[in-house]
């Protein structure tokens, strides 16, 4: 936020942050959520969502989730907004319930946006290519383990 003025008062600080929130919501969240809703709609109308649910059902059961929840993790891996959009859409059409969403949230955040982060973190920080794969694997493992354990708390 180099172009932003330094806040002088509490009100200034709030408005600056609020503006950042509006920008994020408008430019990042809304487009990704719309995309995710369209993808879920597409999968549902083509019958692919049911197929995904069946195929991934046994795997996702490990985390206490229905098979369709895999779409949340995959779209979340690509973009966080897409992941939450998919989760919200599946909640709206009754595929996921509140407990499922609660289990998914930490996993989604931990696995989220890894594709972008490969460039934005690992390359920026100057890591060598041999270190990149283990780093991303660890983050995947951590996300899955977090969901697995969290299901027993929720």
């Amino acid at each position: 936020m180099a172009q932003e003025q330094q806040p002088r008062t509490v009100i200034d600080a709030f408005v600056i942050g609020a503006r950042r929130g509006l920008n994020v919501a408008l430019n990042n969240i809304a487009p990704n959520v719309v995309m995710a809703f369209v993808i879920i709609q597409f999968l549902q109308l083509t019958g692919l969502l049911g197929l995904i649910g069946k195929v991934f059902g046994p795997v996702m059961r490990i985390f206490g989730l229905p098979g369709e929840a895999v779409t949340v993790l995959v779209s979340g891996w690509l973009s966080l907004g897409g992941g939450v959009g998919a989760a919200a859409s599946l909640y709206s059409n009754g595929t996921l319930d509140a407990r499922h969403v609660t289990i998914l949230l930490p996993g989604l955040m931990l696995i989220g946006a890894q594709l972008q982060y490969m460039g934005r973190i690992l390359i920026t920080a100057g890591m060598e290519s041999r270190q990149i794969l283990p780093t991303m694997l660890v983050s995947l493992i951590v996300g899955l383990v977090a969901m697995f354990l969290f299901q027993f708390i929720v």
């Binding site: 929130g21 994020v24 919501a25 990042n28 969240i29 990704n32 959520v33 966080l80 907004g81 992941g83 939450v84 959009g85 989760a87 919200a88 909640y91 969403v101 998914l104 949230l105 930490p106 955040m109 931990l110 696995i111 989220g112 946006a113 890894q114 982060y117 490969m118 973190i121 690992l122 920080a125 890591m127 270190q131 780093t135 991303m136 660890v138 983050s139 951590v142 996300g143």
Partner: peptide, 21 residues
């Protein structure tokens, strides 16, 4: 970097994108 890449920008993302849920 491993610490960062899992759920990076945790505060911002959790209270923006995560807030959706």
């Amino acid at each position: 970097a491993t610490f960062q890449i899992s759920a990076d920008a945790t505060i911002t993302n959790y209270f923006s994108s995560g807030a959706a849920l």
